[in-house]
Design a protein around this nucleic acid. Sequence first.
DNA 1: AGGCAATCGTGATGAAAATCGCATAATGGG
DNA 2: CCCATTATGCGATTTTCATCACGATTGCCT
Lengths: 216, 216
Amino acid sequence: MGLRVARLRRLVLERLMRYYRFLSEGRGRRPAPTVTSAEIADALDIDPTQVRKDLGAIGLLGMGRVGFDACEICRAIRIVLGFDQPYHAVLVGAGHLGTALMAYARFSQYGLNVSAAFDTDRRKIGHLVAGRRVRSTRTLASYITRHDIRLAILTTPVEAAQKVTDRLVAAGIEAIWNFTPTRLTVPPNVFVRNEHISLGLSELAYHLTHLDVTRR
Amino acid sequence: MGLRVARLRRLVLERLMRYYRFLSEGRGRRPAPTVTSAEIADALDIDPTQVRKDLGAIGLLGMGRVGFDACEICRAIRIVLGFDQPYHAVLVGAGHLGTALMAYARFSQYGLNVSAAFDTDRRKIGHLVAGRRVRSTRTLASYITRHDIRLAILTTPVEAAQKVTDRLVAAGIEAIWNFTPTRLTVPPNVFVRNEHISLGLSELAYHLTHLDVTRR
DNA sequence: AGGCAATCGTGATGAAAATCGCATAATGGG
DNA sequence: CCCATTATGCGATTTTCATCACGATTGCCT
């Protein structure tokens, strides 16, 4: 109950995700039903205070010198992040990255069901990719409306990204998980989460070229 | 010349990368050799002041009412981020994601050359993946030392991540691009960049479950 | 039972990042 | 040649995020 959720910020949500993963899989056979903020913090390289603040933000209270009930944390996070209210998604762009994402079965643990894949490549259409039949993007709009699809995973080439996005929006999509290195323009009622992988290269290249041997 | 580089922070580096991509590919046939901070800002959805600060941080000066020299920006960013000093990398874990990354040819534009792939799966070893022969991870250490490999791209399953990391570190790797949802423990002289894709799910799921219709 | 040690909750502090406001400089038109 | 316009540069401010410090609470040990 309770569980006030006052507009959680992105970083908080991401940390909650990490706490959840740690508690549900991460720690080895540690049968303790209770966990301290310090234990989580150590494992995840976060400040213990931060952990307490985050858990407090979703209404969880720890106990005196015992810590938090691990199950209760998991349950609360599942509720807050909505893992127990599964939603359907389509994936557009059945290339290597798209295949990788569909093959990552664990997404269903977090409520995400990828129910179909779409592509424009005739050689792929009709074939199976990661166990799902690839459909033509021409059928995209009707599929979305028919199957109550709320999220689209965008793994097309850059050139096609905005065009596909426009069609997704027109079909009434609610959110887009964008893996293309593009800023998509969408109406304000569509939520976009960008996953710009190649941004990581900037940091890596910078370190490799400048901080050669002299890292602090 | 000049180009003082005083410990640029991660967010600055990532924005520089975005500026670079926008200037080198992004804007359509706009022959203007000069670009204003507002133009960049609009295209990338960033505050114009932020753009000027970032460019100033790498020693670039704009001109009065003209803006910045686009070529000069690109050149400066290439120098700062080290795109012109190529370095070699290996990829460990030739699964779907690994294949996707190797197939993404554009990395070489940013100085990154993936020169070999490794895996433990006997069925993959010896075969070609994205044009590169997959080798046994047993040969990993010797390959790294022999070929002056500085970066490792980690796309193994979670279970193998830390074990592989230890071997990479022992072989003298300088940086790791970690795509596994794990916090790697490494000595302080090894740089790790985490690319935790599934963290995006937290934000997406949260929005889909809570902000159903009522997005501001 | 009573003190000790561990853990929490939270207000205060500090650091980092983003944004604002305005003086300044350069360009182009009249 | 001068002025209005449009950019920049940068100090000041605000906002966000992380950390610290400390009182309060709870279980454990003797």
